[in-house]
Simulated assay, not measured.
Amino acid sequence: MATQANEPSLTLSKFFNDEKIYTPIPIYLPQALTAEQLTNFPAFKNWLTRLLKNFALQDEATHRFHARPFRLHRIDVESVVWFGPKPGFVKLQAKVQNYEDDEAKGLSSGEMAKKGMLWIPGAVFLRGGSVGVLNQPKSSTPTPTPTPSSREEEEEEEEETYTLLTIQPRIPSGSLAFPEIPAGMLDGSHNLGGKAAQEIREETGLVIQESEMIDMSALATSKVTLDPSSSSYSPGKLSSTLHEDIQNAMYPSVGACDESISLFLCQKRMARAKLDELRNKQTGLREEGETITVKVIPFSELWREGGRDGKALAALGLYYSLKERDLLPAWPVKPSERENV
Rank of each mutant, 00 (worst) to 15 (best):
residue 2 A to T: 15
residue 2 A to D: 15
residue 13 S to G: 04
residue 14 K to S: 13
residue 20 K to T: 12
residue 22 Y to S: 13
residue 25 I to M: 09
residue 28 Y to H: 11
residue 34 T to Y: 05
residue 35 A to K: 14
residue 36 E to G: 12
residue 44 F to H: 13
residue 49 T to V: 06
residue 51 L to W: 00
residue 51 L to Y: 01
residue 55 F to V: 10
residue 59 D to L: 08
residue 60 E to N: 11
residue 63 H to S: 11
residue 67 A to D: 07
residue 67 A to M: 02
residue 73 H to I: 09
residue 77 V to Y: 07
residue 87 P to W: 10
residue 88 G to L: 08
residue 94 A to I: 04
residue 98 N to P: 15
residue 99 Y to Q: 05
residue 102 D to F: 07
residue 104 A to I: 00
residue 104 A to V: 07
residue 106 G to E: 09
residue 110 G to R: 08
residue 110 G to E: 13
residue 112 M to H: 10
residue 112 M to F: 10
residue 127 R to H: 13
residue 128 G to I: 05
residue 129 G to H: 14
residue 129 G to Y: 11
residue 129 G to K: 06
residue 130 S to A: 12
residue 135 N to R: 06
residue 136 Q to H: 04
residue 139 S to W: 02
residue 140 S to W: 07
residue 141 T to H: 05
residue 141 T to W: 12
residue 141 T to N: 06
residue 142 P to Q: 07
residue 146 P to M: 13
residue 147 T to M: 03
residue 148 P to E: 13
residue 149 S to A: 13
residue 150 S to F: 00
residue 152 E to H: 05
residue 153 E to K: 00
residue 160 E to W: 03
residue 161 T to N: 01
residue 162 Y to Q: 01
residue 162 Y to L: 01
residue 164 L to V: 02
residue 165 L to T: 05
residue 174 G to P: 11
residue 189 S to T: 11
residue 191 N to L: 14
residue 193 G to C: 11
residue 193 G to E: 13
residue 195 K to E: 15
residue 197 A to G: 06
residue 202 E to F: 03
residue 206 L to Y: 03
residue 209 Q to T: 12
residue 211 S to N: 07
residue 215 D to Y: 04
residue 217 S to L: 03
residue 217 S to Y: 02
residue 221 T to C: 00
residue 222 S to L: 05
residue 224 V to E: 11
residue 226 L to Q: 10
residue 228 P to G: 09
residue 228 P to W: 04
residue 235 P to I: 06
residue 235 P to G: 06
residue 243 H to I: 00
residue 244 E to P: 02
residue 245 D to E: 14
residue 247 Q to T: 01
residue 250 M to W: 15
residue 252 P to K: 00
residue 253 S to G: 08
residue 256 A to L: 14
residue 257 C to S: 14
residue 261 I to E: 10
residue 262 S to Q: 07
residue 267 Q to F: 01
residue 273 A to S: 11
residue 274 K to F: 05
residue 286 R to S: 15
residue 290 E to G: 08
residue 290 E to K: 15
residue 293 T to I: 10
residue 295 K to R: 13
residue 296 V to L: 02
residue 297 I to Y: 01
residue 297 I to Q: 04
residue 298 P to S: 00
residue 299 F to I: 01
residue 300 S to V: 01
residue 302 L to P: 01
residue 305 E to H: 02
residue 305 E to Y: 02
residue 306 G to K: 07
residue 308 R to I: 10
residue 314 A to S: 05
residue 317 G to I: 05
residue 323 K to L: 09
residue 324 E to T: 07
residue 324 E to D: 13
residue 324 E to H: 09
residue 330 A to D: 06
residue 330 A to N: 04
residue 334 K to W: 01
residue 340 N to T: 11
residue 341 V to Y: 02
